[in-house]
Every structure is written in structure tokens, then in C-alpha cells.
């Protein structure tokens, strides 16, 4: 299991692994927003937490189809499915690897991009905290979506259609926590809900993902 995690991390970080792509996408989306809504800093400050959350979510989505697609193509997914490690564990490890290479860098980059959107001073901590709590859920939900669509033609587009509705609760609580924190209100309730969603996704979705992979390989 640890070997699988290290292998996935190595594959993602080496050249052509798409490691920097999500980050670059996040940066570009953030840069585009002021062109769309205008450069007034008070307007940007009001929407900054929400924009950064939506941007991080979309950047996360971008790298999802890589979770299983490459393993499917070269046949290592079949080997993993018949290996002595449980498939549920494989799905969980893959999701963790995705979070380490996507969710974590996005969380670290978000406060820096917050400067570009004139995020108020009080918001940085809460934005980073809400993303740190929420992005694991995005990775696990995404791993489930990737497991469902692996091996399908035009799987990438379908993946977005399936995963985005599942992201709604995470986005609502995450962006709400960041917004409340930014406006100086107590973000405790949405943060707790966010943590609940993440823990629930961590506990249950590997089973659903493994079931989907078994159905797809049959």
C-alpha cells in the first residue's frame, strides 16, 4: 500500500505527470476573474473566498481522470484488482495520492492567490483551513467518480457531469466557512459540517469506488 502511494506520487511529480497543471489552472482562473468582474478591490474582496473555492474545485476536477485512466491503459489496474491488497485500500491510497499532489498544493497556493483578489486580512487563515478540511473530500469523491467512469469512452466529460453535483455540499460549507471567517463571523458550524463530509467521504467512498471498479472490469 505504501509502495503504491510512493509509486503514484513519483508518477505524478515526474515530467509529464501533470503535477503543476492544476496549480497553473488555478492561477489562470484567479487571474481571469478580475477581467470578468472589474478591478474594484471591494467587489473582489467580497467574492474572493467563493471564487477561490470554485477555482480550487475546478482545478481539482481537472486532474481526476488521471487517477485510474493511466493504470487502466497499461493494465496495472487489472493487476491491482487481483492483488492481495483489498481494492478498497487501493482506491483510498489513490485518493490520498491525488490529494497530496493536487489538494495540498491548491490549499497552500490559495492564500497567495488571495492577495490577487484583495482578500481581507482576516480571511487567509480561514480560507486555508477550510480548503485543508474540504479538499480531501473533493479527492475522495473524485476518486469515486473516476472509478465509475474508468474505461468509458468520453469518460472525461461524463466524469465532470457526475462529480460536480456531488461536490455541491462540500463547496457550500467550504465557501461559507471561508466567507464567514473573512467577514469576522464564527465559521465553526460550516467547518464542522465540512469536516463531517470529509470524514464520511473518507470512510464510505472507497467501498463505493471499489464496487464501481469491479463492475467496470467485469
Amino acid at each position: 500500500m505504501l509502495a503504491l502511494l510512493l509509486r503514484d506520487l513519483r508518477l505524478a511529480t515526474r515530467a509529464g505527470g501533470g503535477f503543476g497543471l492544476s496549480l497553473a489552472f488555478f492561477l489562470i482562473v484567479t487571474v481571469l476573474v478580475p477581467f470578468g468582474v472589474g478591478p474594484q478591490s471591494e467587489r473582489l474582496a467580497a467574492i474572493a473566498p467563493g471564487i477561490l473555492w470554485v477555482g480550487a474545485l475546478l482545478a481539482c476536477l481537472l486532474s481526476l481522470d488521471r487517477i485510474f485512466a493511466l493504470d487502466r491503459e497499461d493494465g496495472s489496474l487489472d493487476l491491482l484488482a487481483t492483488a492481495p491488497v483489498p481494492l478498497e485500500g487501493v482506491v483510498a491510497v489513490k485518493a490520498v495520492a491525488h490529494w497530496l499532489t493536487t489538494g495540498l498544493p491548491l490549499t497552500l497556493a490559495a492564500p497567495v492567490l488571495g492577495i490577487l483578489l484583495s482578500l481581507p486580512a482576516g480571511g487567509y487563515v480561514w480560507l486555508a483551513l477550510s480548503l485543508a478540511l474540504g479538499t480531501p473530500a473533493l479527492s475522495f469523491i473524485g476518486a469515486f467518480g473516476a472509478a465509475v467512469t474508468v474505461g468509458l469512452k468520453r469518460g472525461g466529460l461524463l466524469l465532470s457531469l457526475l462529480v460536480l453535483p456531488l461536490y455541491i455540499p462540500t463547496l457550500i460549507f467550504g465557501a461559507e466557512a471561508a466567507r464567514r471567517g473573512t467577514e469576522g463571523l464564527s465559521p465553526a458550524t460550516p467547518l464542522l459540517m465540512l469536516a463531517g463530509i470529509t470524514l464520511g467521504a473518507l470512510a464510505l467512498l472507497p467501498f463505493a469506488g471499489a464496487a464501481a471498479i469491479r463492475a467496470g472490469l467485469r
Binding site: I141, F144, V148, L162, P165, L166, I168, P169, I172, F173, E176, T189, P190, M193, I197, L204, L205, A208, A211, A212, R214, A215, G216, R218
Partner: peptide, 27 residues
């Protein structure tokens, strides 16, 4: 049969998240 399995799993997971969305949206 794969389609039936995959859509059924999606329906189960979707139900949980649809309920979650309901409460998230109320909040």
C-alpha cells in the same frame, strides 16, 4: 450488467449527497 452496477452505485452515493445538498442549501 456493468451499466446496471455502475448506475446503481451512483444512485446510492447520489442519494446520500442529494440529502446532504438539501441540508447544505437550507443552511
Amino acid at each position: 450488467d456493468s451499466a446496471a452496477d455502475l448506475t446503481s452505485v451512483l444512485c446510492l452515493v447520489g442519494s446520500v449527497f442529494a440529502l446532504l445538498s438539501r441540508y447544505a442549501v437550507l443552511f
